[in-house]
Design a protein around this nucleic acid. Structure first.
Length: 800
DNA sequence: GATTAGGCTTAG
């Protein structure tokens, strides 16, 4: 039972306290030991933390664990102290009983003070002479239902600190100071979010999926709330407390990447989240793949390595490919619709306190709002800054009313600053007298509270998030300066007025094109001669196919053939058909081995091109397997080509079946454009196989996964059938090949369609879509047919 | 003794 029974001798170490006083440990309750095997009393029996309960015997018992959390020393009266720490079961060599592995330990008196000075987070301890009490915080921290209480002269803590290796190890290995332990902690490790358990203090990386700017709490600190995710596909809530705003992560938008050091995990509502702990620090990075990896931090010194750079780039690529991030809701003034909530990146021109709970900000982003903007007049006495730059032009300056908790932030703003205002509400002025003329004019409200991330962030002038805004403002300011009457400015601001006012609905899609076109009615679209480009605002009456998996097709880029993705049953029967006879291929270019199949007597042949001389070559030709066997094998060995024997030679299966299995991905070839016949692949120079290289080596024309849907659009004038085809992937922000294998991607598309076309919703409840349409003519039955296709449009406005 | 908040629209 006792793991440390080698020697009964207890060696008491000299140690140095932080004050530099050298003392002798045998009169102090915290003992620093280098070898617990010889230096911890052998009569102590170790009890695993999960096994502890209120009735556990404590005499001659001990607990061994790692300090995962150390709280500050609390001074009481009369030189008395108290200190809390969290200890996690450490290095147990037997199977642990189930139960919480982390426990609170409360230390009293001199032991608390001594512990505070001599024990660091990460140290491994042996605790003895404790009593077991009920933990009053079990529901809050999710740790062990008991706690350990250490007081009086029985209580004792051994700190196990093996001498540090290497040249910087202490010259006197019998004692170790806190400083020399720290010196060896230069390498940080990061825990995957799925591996977090309550009671740990960890470092994590993640992509931000939700955030609130720091806001004042009822306590002494500001609080930031964020949600992050990583490749392990877990979402983690993070709560950052700090009274210093600069210590909070500087998050500008969803998709930013954060690195958090020293956060502690805890259980809340049955899930793990993290919170700042002692020594917390944060770095933030832009989330765009390819942008410079420059951390945003106020810290003067921080650890940042090539590995960190790779981690950031990995998270960027992962987030971009997965389209798992909720869409950003950044909107320019020119495309703000009444009643939407949106994020505005802008420059502050002027501000004025309205009353104690409201401040007015005058901002612009260089674009002109489609809808008339309310121009809230302010006494020039109270107005700080000026809106003169717009020279009387209408609808360039937005009035933003900032309420309640945001007033404090607004007070610190100076005209000229660049801001991002989150969850701004576009509120049409009601039509009541005496301002009848301004009915419908938009004012922007930043409501009180922090729901949906409401808040204001000052963006640094050199921020990449500002480049576009600054370019626009520069060109508009210059144009206004030179010729305030220049009508070409209309082009810059765009002036689509026609149908908008008649139809002031918010939009659930966003156009990404650069056209400065007015919106037109669907009746106009139908009457126009192709080819043309239109901007329309319409509702979705219906769409085809309703079963969304049927919207996924295979497309040959060469002959433009389009076919359905075969279902599992069809593929399985093609594999079944290929299981003919017991004879197997034998090709000079491949080494052949055999596996037993699920059916006695049937063998699966594995043909390895280049044989054993090419151990790095991962392309395997598989013969005699069912679809199920194939899928099982390709899960482990990534690159597999199913083959069969045909006229004595190795050949591909019917190209209705996938010709290449890459993990869970299946790749198809075009029947029309691929070379049939026996296989003699040239595998010589290929080190890494992908679907293109395999297709090339096998003479197969690769087919692409694509989306094809037909949407029936309608407005008050007409209806038009429009295809989602060439720009369908960017419309959904999901690649078709991802949709072929990822349930998440499929769910995302389903959700998107549900939002565009709510089930059972009446026409009035259906959202409006702002779309860029192209018309074109195609030959059909010897005559021209006009088609419409949706281009440059992304689903997911501020509402999605 | 270990604070705060713990996203999920104001209602101006």
């Amino acid at each position: 039972m006792n793991k440390w029974s080698h020697k009964a001798t207890v060696l008491y170490m000299k140690f140095e306290t932080k004050e530099g006083i050298t003392g002798v440990a045998d009169i102090m309750p915290v003992h620093v030991v280098t070898d617990p095997g010889t230096q911890v009393p052998s009569h102590l029996q170790r009890i695993p933390i999960p096994q502890l309960n209120r009735t556990s015997p404590t005499t001659d018992m001990c607990v061994k664990g790692k300090v995962v959390q150390k709280y500050p020393l609390v001074s009481l009266e009369d030189d008395d102290y108290i200190l809390k720490t969290v200890v996690q079961e450490h290095d147990h060599q037997q199977n642990l009983p189930s139960g919480p592995t982390s426990i609170n330990a409360i230390l009293f008196g001199a032991l608390a003070k001594d512990f505070s000075q001599n024990v660091n987070q990460g140290d491994v301890l042996v605790l003895a002479g404790f009593t077991v009490g009920r933990s009053p915080t079990v529901h809050k921290d999710g740790l062990h239902p008991c706690n350990l209480q250490l007081s009086g002269k029985e209580a004792c803590v051994y700190v196990c600190r093996p001498p540090a290796p290497g040249p910087s190890a202490s010259a006197n290995p019998t004692w170790t100071t806190a400083a020399s332990v720290e010196a060896h902690k230069t390498k940080y490790t990061y825990v995957a979010l799925k591996d977090l358990k309550p009671g740990m203090v960890v470092n994590v990386y993640g992509v931000v999926t939700f955030f609130k700017q720091p806001f004042r709490t009822k306590g002494t600190d500001y609080c930031s709330t964020l949600k992050i995710t990583d490749q392990s596909d877990v979402k983690l809530g993070c709560t950052i407390f700090s009274d210093k705003l600069e210590d909070h992560p500087q998050i500008y938008k969803i998709g930013d990447i954060v690195r958090l050091h020293r956060v502690k995990t805890q259980l809340f509502n049955g899930t793990v989240n993290v919170m700042t702990s002692l020594g917390f620090s944060a770095l933030t990075f832009d989330g765009a793949p390819g942008s410079p990896v420059v951390p945003r931090t106020s810290s003067k010194s921080f650890h940042f390595s090539d590995e960190d750079r790779r981690t950031v780039e990995g998270l960027r690529a992962w987030a971009a490919s997965r389209s798992v991030l909720p869409p950003a809701s950044c909107v320019r003034l020119s495309s703000v619709q009444p009643r939407v909530y949106f994020d505005l990146t802008c420059q502050l021109l002027a501000k004025a306190a309205v009353d104690t709970s409201c401040t007015l900000l005058k901002v612009w982003d260089g674009t002109r709002c489609d809808h008339p903007l309310l121009n809230l007049a302010v006494d020039s006495e109270t107005l700080e800054g000026s809106t003169a730059v717009v020279r009387g032009r209408d609808n360039l300056v937005a009035s933003v009313l900032v309420y309640d908790n945001h007033v404090e932030v607004a007070q610190g703003l100076k005209p000229g600053m660049y801001l991002r205002i989150y969850n701004l509400h576009a509120v049409p002025q009601s039509g009541a007298v005496p301002h009848e003329a301004e009915a419908g004019h938009l004012a922007f409200h930043l409501h009180g509270g922090t729901a949906y991330g409401r808040g204001i962030r000052v963006l640094p002038e050199d921020s990449p998030d500002l480049q576009e805004l600054r370019r626009t403002l520069d060109s508009v300011s210059a144009a206004l300066e030179n010729d305030p009457e220049d009508s070409s400015l209309e082009e810059v601001w765009s002036t689509p007025q026609e149908s908008l006012d008649a139809n002031p609905q918010e939009s659930i899609t966003v156009r990404t094109c650069d056209h400065k076109l007015k919106h037109v009615t669907l009746a106009r679209v139908k009457a126009a001669t192709p080819p043309q480009v239109f901007h329309v605002r319409a509702q979705l009456r219906s769409f085809q196919p309703e079963r969304l998996h049927q919207a996924l097709k295979l497309h040959c880029p060469k002959c433009r053939a389009l076919r359905d993705v075969p279902d599992e049953e069809t593929i399985a029967s093609l594999f079944q058909e290929a299981l003919n006879g017991t004879e197997h291929c034998s090709e000079a270019w491949a080494l052949t081995g055999y596996l037993d199949s699920s059916v006695p007597g049937r063998k699966i042949a594995l043909h390895l091109p280049g044989g054993m001389e090419r151990p790095g070559n991962e392309l395997v030709f598989v013969e005699g397997a069912t679809l199920e066997e194939m899928c099982r094998m390709s899960g482990g060995c990534r690159n597999m080509v199913p083959v069969r024997l045909s006229e004595g030679r190795m050949a591909l299966l019917d190209l209705s079946a996938p010709f290449f299995f890459q993990g869970t991905k299946k790749h198809y070839g075009c029947k029309q454009c691929s070379q049939a016949g026996c296989l003699e692949p040239d595998t010589e120079d290929v080190r890494e196989w992908d679907e293109r290289k395999v297709a090339e080596a096998l003479g197969v024309q690769l087919m692409q996964y694509v989306f094809l849907m037909q949407l029936e659009l309608e407005d008050e004038t007409d209806s038009v059938e429009a295809l989602l085809w060439e720009h369908a992937e960017s419309f959904f922000r999901v690649s078709a090949s991802d949709a072929a294998t990822s349930q998440d991607a499929q769910d995302w598309i389903q959700e998107t369609m549900n939002k565009l076309h709510p089930l059972g919703g009446s026409l009035a409840e259906r959202p409006w879509l702002d779309l860029c349409l192209r018309s074109y003519a195609v030959e059909g039955d010897g005559r021209h047919v006009v088609c419409h296709q949706i281009f440059d449009t992304v689903a997911g406005g501020a509402e999605l």
